[in-house]
């Protein structure tokens, strides 16, 4: 049970918690946080793989490290875009006369018009 394996398992655990959070999250912020947790978990597994790949004078394989750095920056831009959308949505909802929140997509005339509370993302 060396350090890389321990942190590999932690990465797996974090990914599992992230997936759980994405399934259970009921509003957009919860899902964005769960997405970041899942990302953290994935990168941690990558870090464990890098640490196992140590050798030839490096304490960890540099290629996965570079990929994780790129991954973190991409995850940040995803979060920034998601939060911008979220704030815009909140602003539109707060504005008077905003359309009643209905589940995104068509309420086909086939089903009775059962409007669910704010069908957020």
């Amino acid at each position: 049970m060396s350090a890389p394996v321990l942190f590999g398992l932690l990465g797996a655990a974090l990914s599992a918690v992230g997936v759980y959070g994405l399934m259970v999250g009921r509003d957009a912020l919860a899902r964005i946080l769960a997405f970041n947790l899942l990302g953290g978990g994935v990168f941690l597994v990558f870090g464990a793989v890098a640490r196992r790949g140590a050798g030839a004078g490096f304490a960890a394989d540099p290629v996965p490290q570079a990929l994780v750095i790129t991954g973190i920056v991409v995850a940040f831009s995803a979060t920034a875009l998601a939060v911008a959308l979220l704030k815009r949505l909140a602003a539109l909802r707060a504005r008077p006369g905003a359309a009643p929140a209905k589940v995104a997509g068509a309420q086909a005339e086939g089903t009775k018009g059962r409007v669910q509370p704010g069908g957020d993302a």
């Binding site: 009921r26 957009a28 953290g40 940040f76």
Partner: peptide
């Protein structure tokens, strides 16, 4: 980036009106 600036952005999101939940 991962927790600093992302945290800052998420704090802004959390500060907004309580989100309508599904």
């Amino acid at each position: 980036v991962g927790s600093g600036i992302t945290g800052l952005v998420l704090l802004q999101a959390a500060a907004d009106a309580p989100l309508t939940r599904e």
